[in-house]
Design a protein around this nucleic acid. Structure first.
Lengths: 152, 152
DNA sequence: GTTTATGCAAAACATTTGCATAGTC
DNA sequence: GACTATGCAAATGTTTTGCATAAAC
């Protein structure tokens, strides 16, 4: 299994903030390191639990900066909860596994182009969109086929 | 301009609840009438302002029943706020105007089919999805062309 | 030294819940 | 009369804000 390097990624998050004129501080470095270590989406309060010596406000404020900078994106869970996750820059969509919480980026699907066409049909000036896709990832499907929960 | 009849629609909402075994009560009739009169999406707290003599709990509980029954649907605004609106039964998506708040149903766009294909590519077991589309409706675009805010 | 960030506590919201009372069927 | 719905108030959970202090540039 390949584990992505954590520190450089954290470093990159901090650097992104600096490029936008924000300062390099200890709390932000701690936050960046925790976020960089995440392999799935997470709640803001989750960060708070893992960084008990940081103030709530700091976490929420920094998180917002990271989202605005585009390096972290917001994820809407099926139950309506708002989570966050590292963003591979650029607009994209997520396939969210409702079983294990993993998320993969949706590729090979031109949502944008399709919406552009549809919007034109409606004389609607397209501005943006939000798409989340829910289901079960390959791993979870395979797991359940190996030991089925309920088969008639 | 054609104005949809309000009372019959309210009546229909109540009837839907009755068909599901819920009772016909005065608070629910009042709520149904207000919702039936809405021509755009609305917040739960907005209903509360317009129905000050109903308890918060009643509004939220009834709203939930209406959503479960499929006659009202949830709408996610661009700013992350959750709104509601009358639903023309069945799964569909909205074109939300960020200027006037109007919403129209997205037709002529097979999101479902496209996602099915894409999911297959990822070996992902599709389960559901949530799509909201933001922009400006025909009316607002026309309005701004008539009196442009800023043209170089 | 000036400006920005932090931490705390409190406020602000939206939504849910427990429970006694009232209303429906 | 049995069962469901209501209203209130309080709890919940998340996110935001004011402000004095501390840290970064």
């Amino acid at each position: 299994m390949v584990r992505a390097p954590v520190y450089p990624l954290a470093q990159q998050l901090i650097q992104t903030l600096q490029e936008r004129g924000y300062r390099d501080t200890a709390p932000r470095r701690a936050l960046a390191r925790v976020i960089a270590g995440k392999d799935r989406h997470f709640a803001a309060e989750e960060l708070r639990n893992e960084l008990p010596h940081l103030g709530r406000a700091t976490i929420y404020r920094s998180l917002k900066l990271l989202v605005e900078a585009g390096v972290v994106c917001r994820v809407l869970l099926e139950d309506g909860n708002l989570h966050y996750q590292l963003s591979h820059r650029g607009h994209h969509h997520h396939l969210l596994c409702v079983e294990c919480g993993a998320s993969q980026d949706l590729v090979g699907c031109d949502v944008e182009g399709m919406l552009k066409q549809a919007a034109a049909l409606h004389n609607f000036q397209l501005n943006g969109h939000w798409l989340e896709v829910y289901g079960r990832c390959q791993t979870c499907v395979a797991k359940d086929e190996a030991s089925p929960a309920q088969v008639s």
